[in-house]
Design a protein around this nucleic acid. Structure first.
Lengths: 234, 234
DNA sequence: GAAATAAACTGATCCGGCGCAACTATTTTT
DNA sequence: AAAAATAGTTGCGCCGGATCAGTTTATTTC
């Protein structure tokens, strides 16, 4: 279900998750073409799938795993989004005359990535309007989430940003109120735009306040209503 | 021309400007359909074209003028981008089952907006793959610029952010090193994620340092090389 | 053209959150 | 199993910028 805070608050989630069937929109011939021009690659935890600035040769379909999509420059990192299975990544590189990757991708867990030739993918977009319309929908969904995160990171302070990311992880990635985080504290920092130290301090504060339970990487959301209030009020 | 800092720095610009010919990609019948299902409306300076959260009834083609695309909540504002003539806006609302506007739009100058029925626009996207492919390109260009701004606002401090926005205004909107700003200081704040007071102080500093010339709304970039260095180093 | 309103500016204050340093715990390497 | 490297944690000082309060300058409005 689509998040309900469309008219109310600005959605702040940073995960993109679609159980969609772009593949089903292709004709049989097109499916064959995709199959013949793609390979499934297994990436181990922590491996880099692609780097920003490189010429885009493939579209990445994440068949399984968890990855971060991010920008890095000097010692500054910004995680644009997390992606889980069934996600098409790298489509942002489809842009006439300048198809360089606008972000890097690295895995958090062992992941299976189907690498689809970008020329073939583009060709199908150009010839199959049901497919390209669906892609427009996917891009727009991502963009809307992006806006929410943009707002969160630029307008809220630490408490609100941490509440945002915790709710997001729970709702969108792990689909449970308790989960084991494959991200480091530093990654949580890059995701929320704060320093590693601040992440640690804030999480401790949340724990002491009874908002979350925490043992190392294991996190449990204990008071979601209050977390949502913290998210709303910044 | 596409900005050259794709592999080097992360592009930070906040304006979207395309001299594109989406209209030319339509068939004669489709052009007629668009014409019959759209109207050109004149908005005066400062008028609101649409508000976030409303059901999206139209796609907005900005035939002339300058507008801000923004998020507002409580007293927090974030300008997502500025748009000038020849821009298609509101496409982000095309998303199955949830076509609410993800942002608000307000004019800075008198503007002419062609309001295109969203059902018709969507219909054409679904049937004309050359058109929808072009739209994908447009969306991706916007997204790439978004990423750059996201990075700028979350990772750089005031000097860098102000340099970014000044370069952007010069390169993308006014296409000149000197221009008369239709934005207030408060709007510059919403654009750079800083307070109005900080904008004023920073601009004074830039002026005193000989980076820019400034008389009220008239601004001239005097030392672009140094501005770019400031942009790069945060 | 006077009054009212909004925008631009200035100075003083205060605090959120970063960066540093030091230390501990955990994981990886050999 | 020891060594090395990485990740997590804590305390402290400092400073970038927000906020507040007040003044000046434009712009509307009637």
């Amino acid at each position: 279900m689509i998040q309900s805070n469309d008219t109310k608050g600005i959605s702040h989630c940073s995960v993109f998750d679609s159980e969609t069937s772009w593949y089903d929109l292709l004709t049989d011939d097109e499916k064959i073409l995709i199959n013949e021009n793609s390979v499934s690659i297994i990436f181990k935890k922590g491996e880099t799938v692609c780097k920003r600035g490189a010429f885009a040769s493939h579209i990445y379909f994440l068949e399984d795993g968890l990855v971060k999509v991010y920008l890095e420059e000097k010692n500054k990192n910004l995680i644009l989004m997390l992606a889980i299975r069934n996600n098409l990544l790298g489509m942002a590189a489809i842009f006439d005359g300048n198809n360089k990757l606008p972000y890097s991708i690295t895995t958090y867990t062992d992941s299976i990535v189907r690498m689809i030739d970008i020329q073939v993918f583009t060709k199908l977009l150009k010839q199959n309007s049901a497919f390209s319309f669906h892609v427009i929908n996917l891009l727009n969904e991502k963009t809307a989430q992006m806006y929410g995160r943009f707002f969160s990171l630029t307008q809220k302070q630490l408490h609100g940003r941490l509440a945002d990311i915790l709710l997001c992880l729970s709702n969108r990635i792990f689909k449970s109120t308790s989960f084991e985080l494959p991200l480091s504290r530093a990654d949580l920092g890059d995701l929320t735009g704060m320093s590693t130290e601040s992440i640690i301090r804030m999480m401790k504060e949340f724990k002491d306040d009874g908002l979350i339970g925490m043992h190392c990487k294991n996190i449990e959301l204990l008071d979601i209503a209050r977390l949502e209030r913290i998210s709303e009020f910044g």
